[in-house]
Design a protein around this nucleic acid. Structure first.
Length: 510
RNA sequence: GAGGCUGUAGCUCAGCUGGUAGAGCAUCUGCCUUUUAAGCAGGUGGCCGAUGGUUCGAAUCCAUCCAGCCUCACCA
């Protein structure tokens, strides 16, 4: 009921708004003058930037057919200029009454935001701008809503100044389509994101790894410490969870005989949202049989460096205020050595009580329930991680933080796990996979105890996964890379929302 | 979850210690056949996020709510 009232109110306001009303009237005028304001097709043969690139002042003028959105208009009586925007950028149109005749009168009914198709010869204006002299103009889509008008001026040194940019973040995310029209840089980020994913896919395919798809709806969720989304399947009358990770399914495939598998897929975690977290996000996971985490370090270092070079043609890129060099080899430190280097304290021989004391002396506040693994993690992420700007491999983590990783072959209490830290943030997580089913069961049971004590992010015991391990899984190295965060690093964006086309928002309800 | 900031015309923003709203761009009407943040002249346009309260009087003060941003906490 209240919704209906709001709807009516909204419709009423819409009708009252003179800008919307006027455009609807123009739409009618167009129809009455015999023009279909929503065309069926247009044979686009040329694009703005290409036309400008191949223009030669002395050559005979060439004809082009372009289509795009009207972004600016300067009407001057019997002649007009406008810019249209296509996928490559903008190009100026020159429209004359004597060339277009009655079509020219219909230009009065065009607005910024309309999509048109234009054919004509290219020339350079007195002011020096390469432009198309329109010989025909077709309306392909009439725009009924006023677009934010962003005027641009190119200064003498070639920089583009933009006036009144469409900058309200909320509106930009909610109406990404408008954002993309008006802020062309946005499209560049998503092109780079696509290039990045394609590069990784090609890279892994070339190494002979198989891309697979595993269930997003899972009766038992696992592979990470997180709370899941819950849903229900009617036909099976079954509670299902949206996956929080692919890990346990991909390792079943290693058991099944694929020696290298990967998946690029959405994971879902029912947790808070901030500049680094969206409830759904894209994860790459890769598992390679007969390899260990040392091998994986070399692999991820090479792949990431090649990726950066592929996108930027250099290993050195700007991230925020920093310049980051991805050229291998990267610095490698054990977690204990990293803590010693950045805090001056050697924690390798400390027991839980001593660790707690050390952490408190470093100014950290700890939950009384925190065990030694948690304390170490706390020291690291508070005091070390933010200082690691250049790509750094941190290895050998406490076992309690990593229930799916294999025990370290020579350091008791640790596992063979590493993370890559860039710009103070985790970029990937990898380890030698635990393939001992007896120990895996014990680790799961530890997690279940945590769960009973109220840790609702502890791992859930997966009986079928244990059964798979009991058949025997070869030693394997596994890797997880958050594609969104990788994109943030590569495109120099500070919020995950800027690398997601449609980030999660609360409903508008206006 | 805690604190801070923000919400005024389609867009970007002004509105001091309360007296029922203003600019630029967009839009409308004229004039203008190489303009470019086109120009000149004149207009239209607002339930000041929502709901209550204080007051003779609220965009302005107070409370609650909604939405967004930032910081912290939680979290990979």
């Amino acid at each position: 009921m209240a919704d209906n009232q709001q709807q009516e109110k909204k419709l009423y306001q819409q009708e009252v708004n003179e800008l919307l009303k006027r455009r609807r009237e123009e739409l009618e005028h167009l129809k009455q003058s015999g023009v279909d304001p929503y065309g069926y097709e247009y044979d686009v043969t040329d694009y703005s930037a290409s036309i400008k690139n191949e223009f030669e002042d002395d050559a005979p003028p060439k004809r082009y057919r372009v289509a795009g959105r009207v972004m600016s208009m300067r009407k001057m009586g019997k002649a007009s200029f406008m810019h249209i925007q296509d996928q490559e950028g903008r190009i100026q149109l020159y429209l004359r009454k004597d060339a277009l005749n009655e079509t020219y009168d219909r230009i009065k009914l065009l607005d910024i935001g309309d999509i048109i198709g234009v054919e004509g010869e290219v020339f350079r204006t007195k002011m020096g701008e390469i432009s198309i002299k329109a010989e025909s103009v077709e309306v392909l889509a009439k725009s009924l809503r006023p677009l934010p008008v962003v005027k641009e001026r190119t200064t003498e040194d070639g920089t583009v100044v933009r006036y009144d940019p469409f900058s309200d973040k909320e509106l930009r995310y909610r109406q990404r389509y408008v954002d993309m029209i008006v802020n062309p840089d946005v499209r560049e980020v998503f092109k780079k994101r696509a290039q990045l994913i394609k590069f990784i896919r090609d890279y892994l395919d070339d190494q002979g790894y198989l891309e697979v798809e595993t269930p997003a709806l899972q009766p038992v969720y696992g592979g990470a410490a997180a709370r899941p989304f819950v849903t229900h399947h009617n036909a099976l009358n079954l509670k299902l969870y949206l996956r929080i990770a692919d890990e346990l399914y991909l390792k079943r495939l290693i058991v099944g005989g694929f020696d290298g598998v990967y998946e690029i897929a959405k994971d879902f975690r029912n947790e808070g949202m901030d500049r680094n977290h969206n409830p759904e996000f894209t994860m790459l996971e890769l598992y390679v049989a007969y390899k260990d985490y040392k091998w994986m370090m070399d692999f991820v270092e090479r792949m990431t460096a090649d990726l950066v070079h592929h996108i930027h043609s250099t290993f050195t890129i700007s991230i925020g205020e920093h310049t980051v060099d991805f050229k291998p080899p990267w610095k490698r430190l054990t977690m204990f050595d990293a803590i010693q280097e950045y805090t001056g304290i050697d924690i390798s021989e400390l027991d839980e009580a001593a660790l707690r004391k050390a952490a408190q002396e470093l100014g950290l506040e700890l939950e009384p329930s925190a065990g030694s693994g948690k304390i170490i993690d706390e020291i690291f992420s508070e005091l070390v991680e933010p200082k690691l700007i250049q790509p750094t491999i941190i290895m050998d983590y406490p076992v309690s933080m990593s229930p799916l990783a294999k025990p370290h072959r020579s350091k008791p209490g640790l596992v063979e796990r590493f993370e890559v830290i860039v710009n103070g943030q985790e970029l990937c997580n990898a380890f030698s996979e635990l393939n001992d089913p007896v120990e895996q069961r014990a680790r799961f049971e530890e997690q279940m105890k945590l769960r009973e004590r109220g840790d609702d992010e502890a791992h859930v015991l997966d009986e079928d996964y244990l059964r798979a391990l009991e058949y025997g899984m070869p030693p394997a190295a596994g890797l997880g890379i958050g594609i969104d965060r990788l994109t943030m690093v590569i495109t120099n964006q500070e919020s995950i929302r800027d690398v997601l086309l449609f980030p999660q928002m609360r409903p508008e309800g206006k």
